Simulated scan of single mutants.
Amino acid sequence: MTTHSRFWRDPALPFIEARRVDDGRKVCYAPHSHESFSIGAITGGRSTYVSGDNHQQVTAGSVVLMNPGVVHTCNPIEGEPWSYLMLYVDLPWLQALGFQPFEVLSSQSPDLYQGLCQLHGVLTDSQLSSASKHAALRIFFSELIQRLPSRVADAGRVNPRLLTAAAFIRAHCTQALRLEDMGDAAGLSTSYLIRAFKQHFGLTPHGYLVDQRVQYARARLRSGALIAEVALEAGFADQAHLQRAFKRHLAATPGHYRSAQ
């Protein structure tokens, strides 16, 4: 059992997942993204938060916000101890409340920090009903959406063929894709695809493919599927390949993640 990291899930609330990490030095991430919206509270120490081109140091009392699909990392500073808690919220549920991607990447608001910590405590309290937790979630995120400014779309600056390539990778991530397949699907040369894709998405096309496979595997493991089966379904050569990729992207083994309560 991994004592420095704990996941929480409730079958009655399938749109939300929580995680608490007591020793962030043991939980390090490669650049990755989430299909869900992520929000976290730094509960002790400090770390480096990288989101897209933005690099910042976050300390105890900070709240970090990670929009869906944005490549990010949050890792220790020279081995210093730090701790945090996270919530991962499915996009359709949030959009029903009026969610649009946020403009801010972090907040120092004591009220927001305290509210997030209290919400995490509500979710992980085994004495409270799922209905009570659902009500607390709706209140917190409705207020968050009203409180924080939404990001203004940066239209017209992205080659639409890059978006086509990304969509192709997402749609076929469990298949054996070559770089040439990705380029042909979007009408782009492989050299341009590698250079421009990394510049826009923060990952190479192959890195994006692996990230999508990990996200697929994460969803299947949440449903209780067997790890060996998930590895092959997601497009990995075997369970060992899934294990390595999963740990790099989510700082947890598939077994630890799957067994979370």
Rank of each mutant, 00 (worst) to 15 (best):
M1H: 14
T2F: 04
T2S: 05
P11S: 13
L13F: 12
F15P: 01
F15E: 10
I16T: 12
V21P: 01
V27T: 13
E35R: 10
F37Q: 14
F37Y: 15
I39H: 00
I39Q: 04
A41C: 14
I42T: 09
T48W: 06
T48S: 03
N54K: 05
G61Q: 02
G61P: 08
S62R: 04
V63F: 05
V63D: 01
N67F: 04
V70I: 07
E78A: 07
E80I: 05
M86I: 07
Y88P: 02
P92T: 02
W93P: 00
W93G: 00
Q95T: 12
A96G: 01
G98I: 06
Q100Y: 09
Q100K: 09
P101E: 01
Q108V: 04
D111W: 04
Q114N: 11
G115N: 15
Q118G: 14
L119P: 11
V122P: 02
D125F: 10
D125G: 12
S129A: 03
S129Q: 12
A135L: 09
R138H: 12
S142Y: 00
I145H: 10
I145M: 11
R157M: 04
P160V: 05
P160S: 13
R161L: 15
R161H: 12
T164W: 08
A166Y: 10
A166H: 10
C173A: 15
Q175T: 09
A185W: 07
L188W: 02
S189E: 11
R195L: 14
K198P: 01
D211I: 05
Q212C: 15
R213C: 09
R218F: 05
L221M: 11
G235D: 12
F236M: 13
A237T: 14
L242H: 09
R248K: 15
H249T: 00
H249A: 14
A251S: 15
P254V: 01
P254W: 03
Y257A: 03
R258H: 05
A260P: 03
